[in-house]
């Protein structure tokens, strides 16, 4: 690691590296901890880093966070996605596939190799009455995606009826979760928001050369 420069300069350089690969990257480093920086992401976002001092944090209900890293390239990242309605609809699955592919490609752009990537999955719980199948659908999709793609699923925590505060150290692969009450107001508010799409400019349109 290069430690030359001020904290702000190093932070800016890290953000520039982390955001170079794919468009949907949050730029909201909100606070510094004694042992590093915490980058908060929300639904529809992802973050990738090769900085061992960075911690990626998120709040999960029925959403799923995929935490992927290459232990040899020492780079990792987290996404946070929620499949829209429609049980099993192709469009919904495509939404999740896109979120996972963006994260995998961002790792590859930082020197990771697909066959070395290992994953932890978190979330997919049932925290709001009436949304019973949503968490299960997200959890099942994420597990199935890893299985089909041959990405090693080495751990995590899926399902249940409590929300989770999740922290993930993308270089070491360490993860820490704290369960929240299923009726936590912050969680209810997030669960009832519209689904956020990973933003991609001009998605699906043909550009002829």
């Amino acid at each position: 690691m290069n430690h030359i420069g001020t904290l702000a300069e190093r932070r800016a350089a890290r953000l520039a590296r982390a955001t170079a690969a794919t468009p949907p990257q949050p730029l909201r480093v909100r606070r510094a901890m004694a042992d590093g920086e915490v980058v908060h992401i929300v639904q529809g976002e992802q973050y990738v880093s090769e900085d061992p001092n960075v911690v990626i944090a998120t709040l999960l209900g029925s959403c799923v966070a995929g935490c992927l890293r290459d232990p040899i390239a020492r780079v990792g990242g987290m996404n946070h996605f929620l499949l829209p309605g429609g049980e099993g609809a192709r469009e919904d699955i495509g939404f999740g596939v896109h979120a996972m592919e963006l994260l995998v490609n961002a790792l590859l752009a930082h020197g990771a190799r697909r066959e070395r990537i290992e994953a932890k999955l978190f979330g997919g719980s049932c925290v709001v009455a009436g949304l019973t199948s949503v968490g299960e659908k997200n959890a099942r999709f994420a597990e199935e995606f890893l299985r089909r793609e041959g990405i090693r699923h080495i751990g995590g925590s899926l399902r249940g009826d409590s929300g989770r505060r999740l922290q993930y150290w993308p270089v070491s692969g360490r993860a820490r979760q704290v369960f929240m009450g299923s009726t936590a107001p912050e969680l209810i508010a997030r669960e009832t928001r519209p689904v956020a799409t990973p933003k991609t400019e001009d998605a699906g349109a043909l550009e002829l050369f």
């Binding site: 939404f95 896109h98 699906g204 043909l206 050369f209």
Partner: peptide, 16 residues
């Protein structure tokens, strides 16, 4: 390449 399409793809746009 002849053209470029950014994922996620829309099935009908892709067919077109």
């Amino acid at each position: 390449a002849t053209g470029w399409i950014v994922k996620p793809f829309d099935p009908q746009k892709l067919v077109d």
